[in-house]
Measured scan of single mutants.
Amino acid sequence: NKFNKELGWATWEIFNLPNLNGVQVKAFIDSLRDDPSQSANLLAEAKKLNDAQA
């Protein structure tokens, strides 16, 4: 379904953000699993944090 596809894509993108540490990645992935409907918002937050830590 739509959420599974978005969840998978967001998970892959978060895993590939180079400036996040393992704890941050795990926290974002756990949040995605808790509420897949928020995948776009969580991915945006992860990208912002990644950019801030560059």
Rank of each mutant, 00 (worst) to 15 (best):
N1S: 05
N1Q: 09
K2S: 13
K2G: 13
K2N: 13
K2T: 07
F3R: 11
F3K: 12
F3I: 14
F3T: 13
F3P: 11
N4M: 12
N4Q: 13
N4W: 15
N4G: 12
N4R: 05
K5G: 13
K5Y: 10
K5Q: 15
E6L: 12
E6N: 09
E6F: 10
L7H: 03
L7K: 02
L7N: 04
L7D: 07
G8W: 15
G8H: 13
G8I: 15
G8F: 15
W9E: 14
W9T: 10
W9P: 07
W9K: 13
A10Q: 05
A10T: 11
A10M: 10
T11W: 14
T11N: 06
T11I: 15
T11E: 15
W12E: 15
W12Y: 10
W12N: 14
W12Q: 14
W12D: 15
E13K: 09
E13R: 08
I14C: 08
I14W: 03
I14G: 02
I14R: 00
F15H: 09
F15N: 10
F15D: 05
N16I: 08
N16C: 14
N16M: 09
N16G: 07
N16W: 07
N16Y: 06
L17F: 06
L17T: 01
L17G: 00
L17V: 01
P18N: 05
P18C: 13
P18K: 06
P18W: 04
N19S: 04
N19D: 03
N19I: 01
N19H: 12
N19Q: 03
L20V: 01
L20E: 00
L20T: 00
L20P: 00
N21V: 05
N21W: 10
N21F: 07
N21S: 14
N21E: 05
G22Q: 11
G22F: 13
G22Y: 13
G22A: 13
G22I: 12
G22M: 13
V23M: 12
V23G: 09
Q24Y: 01
Q24A: 02
V25H: 03
V25G: 00
V25D: 00
V25Q: 06
V25M: 07
V25K: 15
V25N: 01
K26M: 12
K26R: 10
K26E: 06
A27F: 13
F28Q: 00
F28V: 01
F28E: 00
D30G: 05
D30V: 06
S31F: 09
S31H: 07
S31D: 04
S31P: 01
S31A: 14
L32S: 00
L32D: 00
L32F: 03
L32A: 03
R33Q: 09
R33A: 08
D34G: 09
D34A: 14
D34S: 12
D34V: 09
D34P: 00
D35F: 09
D35A: 06
D35E: 05
D35P: 00
P36A: 03
P36D: 02
P36Q: 03
P36I: 06
P36Y: 04
P36L: 04
S37F: 04
S37C: 11
S37H: 05
Q38D: 07
Q38H: 04
Q38W: 03
Q38V: 04
Q38F: 12
Q38A: 08
S39K: 05
S39A: 14
S39F: 10
S39I: 14
S39P: 02
S39L: 10
A40P: 05
A40T: 07
A40G: 07
A40W: 10
A40F: 09
N41M: 11
N41T: 12
N41C: 12
N41F: 13
L42R: 03
L42H: 03
L42E: 00
L42I: 15
L43N: 02
L43A: 03
A44R: 07
A44Y: 09
A44M: 09
A44F: 07
A44P: 01
E45T: 07
A46I: 01
A46F: 03
A46R: 00
A46E: 00
A46Q: 01
A46V: 02
K47R: 13
K47L: 06
K47F: 04
K48Q: 09
K48T: 05
K48I: 06
L49C: 09
L49G: 01
N50T: 01
N50I: 02
N50V: 01
D51A: 11
D51L: 08
D51V: 05
D51Q: 08
A52I: 12
A52Y: 08
A52R: 14
A52H: 09
A52W: 07
Q53M: 12
Q53W: 03
Q53A: 05
A54R: 09
A54I: 06
A54S: 09
A54Q: 11
A54D: 07
